[in-house]
Design a protein around this nucleic acid. Sequence first.
DNA 1: GGTTAGCACTCGAAGCAAAAGAGTGCTAAC
DNA 2: GTTAGCACTCTTTTGCTTCGAGTGCTAACC
Lengths: 353, 353
Amino acid sequence: MDLIERKYRILQAIIDDYILTALPVGSRTISKKYEQNLSSATIRNEMSDLEELGYLDSPHTSAGRVPSNKAYRLYVDRMIHPAPLTLEELSYIQSCFDTRAQQIGTLSAKLARVISSMTNYTTAVMTRTPRAEQKLGHIQLVPVSDRRILAILVTQSGAVKQQMLELDQMITPDALYTVSRILSERLKGCPLSQLSQALTELAGNEGNEIRGMLKSMADIREEIPDDGTLVVGGRSNLLGFPEYSDVGKAQELLKVLETRDKMVSLLSRQGEMEITVRIGPETGIDELRDCSVVTASYRLMDGRVNTIGLIGPTRMQYGRAVSVLEEVGKALQRAVGRQEISGDDPSTDHNRR
Amino acid sequence: MDLIERKYRILQAIIDDYILTALPVGSRTISKKYEQNLSSATIRNEMSDLEELGYLDSPHTSAGRVPSNKAYRLYVDRMIHPAPLTLEELSYIQSCFDTRAQQIGTLSAKLARVISSMTNYTTAVMTRTPRAEQKLGHIQLVPVSDRRILAILVTQSGAVKQQMLELDQMITPDALYTVSRILSERLKGCPLSQLSQALTELAGNEGNEIRGMLKSMADIREEIPDDGTLVVGGRSNLLGFPEYSDVGKAQELLKVLETRDKMVSLLSRQGEMEITVRIGPETGIDELRDCSVVTASYRLMDGRVNTIGLIGPTRMQYGRAVSVLEEVGKALQRAVGRQEISGDDPSTDHNRR
DNA sequence: GGTTAGCACTCGAAGCAAAAGAGTGCTAAC
DNA sequence: GTTAGCACTCTTTTGCTTCGAGTGCTAACC
């Protein structure tokens, strides 16, 4: 199955050209632009072979050839062009993290914006904190109305969960403040996963007045989702690609981006490798059958896991996408601290499956 | 300038039909579907008058007529159909707020999703808290790395601001905890707008160790943006409208939705009236010249202001849009408490300019 | 053997003219 | 004031031809 050198080169030329132009590639194009010492007829023969091997498709008899998903797979695994960023680009990335006082909440949005603008693809950023690792730092209860309070949980790592609670009985703001203090003291350091249990226990020891509240607070754990925040940026980029000049297809795609479940599943599948490329059906989402998704995960020092996904047509500039994600990852590490999820050195590891 | 009764009725029929079909409306359509006792010729004369008055445009000689922005304005001001929601729809809205323990952070996203799905338009939700009204409830400082800490400010109303700070000197987690306690005690109730000043003052009284940190914390105020969070939902709906079957236009529109500045300006212009309709150029954003935007603002009990904007083609189902926003507003009030921004009763106030 | 020139063939894209259809505007009659 | 009738306009659709890019095959070449 191993392709001999020349077939390999021709296939690469075809994919490169198609990625660039989005037009089916003809034998003449290759012989003129890429393999000047071979005639178009020779290329034709090779292309015919490549089609038989499943690396090329032809839309119809007299169009050129188009790479198949199998071809893209091979391309990503073995032919990818390293695409080092320019110094300007590197410092652009850096500048996004340079603000002395970084607004945490907007980091994901900023990342999405930066990456989209640099790649021209759509970017999804998911941040989640494995619940097991989240420990309570502080609880604050805020009165909203007579029977309704807002519980704010701040974890030791600085993540914030807000939760509206409905009480069975009235409670005064003063009492609420006292309870906040007591809870904060007693529960400090308690893993969120055990919070519910701890609250129930506490309720047993307390006077009647507070007991009800503690009990209803015990519901909290069940309600806190741990698939974190999801931000998508650069949707309009999609409409710039000729493959989405059909509005129907574009709409289908936008709809996927709006479906949280699908996006979460897309970004959660991240394995141990640092950067992963999934092509068409490999994404596991039917609507993305003509798209590729490049994902990268970074474990930040505070325990959060950041997954970045680039979404574009299968005809994607994979080298560029990977480079940008690599550099953003490095910048992220410098800015907030990062542990590699895998121990591998990303610059030498090129098995991206 | 006041139109006589019949012209008025005919104009309304034309707008209704165009909103429904997106097709230029001919005289025959009106005489058959809406004004069966008038011949198409009569309608033609009236339409000719209406065009001269600036209420209708004709794309070309032999197409029908299309309402002008002036016509939509009149329609919204005086001809709007009340479109009461069905019981199912009302309870659907209600069910979205019914979860006993409401995740605050996701409320905007949920609102955007619900409203988009009910109207088929795109929804933008902006939540901001006028800074003057925000008072500090609690400060928590969390160590991130040697010189970097995360400051979390929780206001008395339950809003949360996070801020990454870089320090000139190292500080131990223990010291940090102490400082958190002291700051929380001393600054409780301090309006955010005066926080910077208060911090500088405190710094003067404190020992050297802490002084530096307090000083760098004084930067906080400057950095906290007060245009709050912005969530957009239902973008894919836009692509369903024939006016956006041209990908270029759709892309332009999506781009606006991605431009925070423009969206903020769009949603900030809200006057005192509860529900506002802006048509085409009235939006003040060039790219939205063919869109209408219906906005509603609700001041929640905790001081936050919630602005909801519905974005669709000028050929919008205005009655429906207004009804949905009204009902969502009521549900919101029931769920989190609301003060009307204007004192008017929304059900009797129909001047929506 | 691989490579190449030459040529017939295929199939979509572009261009064009004719026909169909929707709608208007005007006139004359009611 | 209303309406029937009709000429006119302009777009859309349809069918047709032409054009061109590209293939596949064959025969010749090295």
